[in-house]
Design a protein around this nucleic acid. Sequence first.
DNA 1: GTTTATACCACTCATATGTGTGGGTGTCAA
DNA 2: TTGACACCCACACATATGAGTGGTATAAAC
Lengths: 203, 203
Amino acid sequence: MEIIKDLTAKQRKVLLYIQDKIKQEGIPPTIREIAASFGFSSTGTVRDYLEALKKKGYLKIAPKKSRCIELLRRAGFGIPILGNVMAGPPDLAFEEAQGYLDLDDFSSKYNNNTFALRIKGDSMIEAGIFEGDIAIVRKQSSAQDGDLIVALIENEATVKRFRHKAKSREHLIWLEPANKNYQPIHKEFSLIGRVIGVLRKYV
Amino acid sequence: MEIIKDLTAKQRKVLLYIQDKIKQEGIPPTIREIAASFGFSSTGTVRDYLEALKKKGYLKIAPKKSRCIELLRRAGFGIPILGNVMAGPPDLAFEEAQGYLDLDDFSSKYNNNTFALRIKGDSMIEAGIFEGDIAIVRKQSSAQDGDLIVALIENEATVKRFRHKAKSREHLIWLEPANKNYQPIHKEFSLIGRVIGVLRKYV
DNA sequence: GTTTATACCACTCATATGTGTGGGTGTCAA
DNA sequence: TTGACACCCACACATATGAGTGGTATAAAC
């Protein structure tokens, strides 16, 4: 992922400035704010930069609207992924990021079907889901064999692995913990959603 | 956490509209866009709503700037945490969220000391860190006993638990894997940062 | 040698936009 | 009954703002 490689130094500075403004103030800057920040005396100069950045695919501009700059995915938002552990030293220069951690996949940005649940208990530790972890869940009413799901069993929500096997004309569905100390669950349940991510925060 | 409880139904609708616009289009709406959306024929009406929402602490308004609406923390951004698993059914009404998952803690929003590394190997599985997981790392040059850290050993980055014991005038420092099959590491290393979070995505 | 891209400038123009003034109705508590 | 508040309206005003036109200079590319 070659990020910010095909830009000139000045173009990169302008792009970074816009990113900063959005991150810090929540809204993109106006053309004149950019001009003032860089000491440009003409808005045309900024327009040239925006055109260049637009042409290179770093941003989108909605015409006729104020603060219309919209950064595109490749502009490198979010947390930079700088490398792999156990694979040599990561290059700590942010410009060399392999990619960017895209938390939008999780956010309820484009839909309101995503929510989070805090994990209690240890029934999924072998799947790396520990007490206190946060499961990020997408509401859905169907699942495939092997999916991690949130199920409602006897009025209690739980995270388990969804199992579905077709055995000689019969469909077997059950829930599987990821802990040797627990037994598979064959009770009736209702499917709430699928776990699309797990997040753990260390204080 | 009583979210959106002290608002009238209409005020809530306006707030939700603003949230939606920010999420979907990246920038807050203008006063006239709000008015148009709700069928108000006067911008003054919107101003009244914004004043009410501002007074109740849901948003901030920067004067004299276009699209100046800034949502405040309590306005309930991010992914709603709807409850705990294994603790009764979660209330799937978003208005009843216990809180909101704050990914800002991780983001390099206000600093550029945060980055991510993809985990290779199984040396930390007992700490719930699996191959393919993404470690979110804050750069720092010191750590406390028990911290999960990213260390550079012989030109290779690795995640391990930092151990530091003072034993009769001596300071012992070593690195501890979270896997019985691996041995503690007493080699020299340099500290890159502390793991402040772990993220796992399921496709 | 011509073209293209980058990197600036000055100036104008239409309008998008926040703000202000002043008005109205209804409800509910003091 | 007075006041605070929610909920609407019309209209005016200054300016913030995107967009347009038309320049200059440099350097690389073809």
